[in-house]
Nucleic acid binder design. Structure first.
Length: 277
DNA sequence: AATTCCTTCAACCGCTATGGC
DNA sequence: TGCCATAGCGGTTGAAGGAAT
């Protein structure tokens, strides 16, 4: 017994959208909205298309402020960093790139970025060995970093890979702080804590140009300021103040493979920090 | 100029998540 | 609590166009 199809495929048009269909859909959605029901929308709009197809066309192509092609170096770095941390969760990655869709990011990764990474001599995190390959990349923070104009960040809560990794290595961490449901004002970057200690002093800017290799060496630089900002490390399902995390020797306790699944770090503004501590 | 191969990316497929009843 | 409809997501496909032969 098969699955119930979402629409009668013999009654709907498939394949590429014509400009007329695009116009019809665009005009309808701009005038009436989706009504919270894509399945019913094509009939109302006078389109011979499946509701799913309409939804996809709108989200990936017709909705306002969509950007196509021309990924910047900064976007590359964000994708690389997030893919390294959370894997192929394209919708989460795309949410960090204004104007980009999950489909775009996925296609870009599969056709260009992955090859770029391989050409640079680095395999995916899960297959990196203890050889001598090294890859460098830059993370460029938003221009007005930090505080008020940081990238909105969707917390990495779902994956247990870090916890599984720690469990396998029989490592226990200090008690984690709970991550609130609505995390705002944070900026993420992937760093190896042992090699790249996060600042314990308040900072106003950082130069997150660093290199990563499978021995977890590299460098990062940070600038202090009078801003009362703090860093917290996001680790699996909780937060750790960085002074605690920096005292934890990861390289001592993890294998080369395991250390490639490094935790993610998040920068939090002072107001946010004080609201949760 | 013709053919084949390769790359790109829009669109589809099928599964899971979510929310309403 | 269970069922159903729909939304959302990630993997995959295939048409189109460019590059190579």
């Amino acid at each position: 017994m098969g699955r119930t199809p979402c629409c009668d495929k013999t009654q709907v048009k498939r394949g590429p959208w014509s400009p007329e269909e695009d116009n019809t859909l665009k005009n309808y959605v701009e005038k009436h909205g989706t009504g919270g029901n894509w399945i019913a929308l094509p009939q109302k709009a006078g389109l011979k298309r499946c509701g799913k197809s309409c939804r996809l066309r709108w989200l990936n192509y017709l909705r306002p402020n969509i950007k196509h092609g021309g990924f910047t170096e900064e976007e590359d770095n964000i994708i690389l960093s997030l893919y390294h941390n959370i894997g192929s969760r394209w919708s989460v990655i795309a949410s960090q790139l204004p104007g980009r869709t999950d489909n775009d990011v996925k296609n870009y990764w599969n056709t260009k970025l992955k090859k770029k990474l391989l050409a640079a001599g680095k395999t995916s995190p899960s297959t990196t060995t203890a050889a001598t390959t090294t890859t460098s990349f830059n993370l460029t923070p938003p221009s007005s970093f930090p505080a008020d104009n940081m990238l909105p960040y969707f917390p990495i809560l779902e994956t247990n890979s870090h916890q599984e990794m720690l469990a396998a290595a029989q490592i226990s961490l200090p008690e984690l702080m709970e991550i609130p449901e609505n995390v705002e004002n944070s900026y993420t970057c992937g760093l190896f804590p042992a090699a790249n200690p996060l600042p314990q002093e308040p900072v106003s800017s950082l130069s997150p140009s660093f290199s990563v290799d499978n021995n977890a060496s590299g460098s990062s630089s940070w600038t202090t300021s009078s801003e009362d900002d703090k860093f917290l490390a996001e680790f699996g399902s909780g937060l750790l103040p960085c002074d605690v995390l920096n005292s934890f020797d990861f390289q001592e306790k993890l294998s080369d493979d395991q250390i490639n699944y490094h935790p993610s770090f998040a920068y939090y503004s002072s107001s946010y920090y004080s609201s949760i501590t």
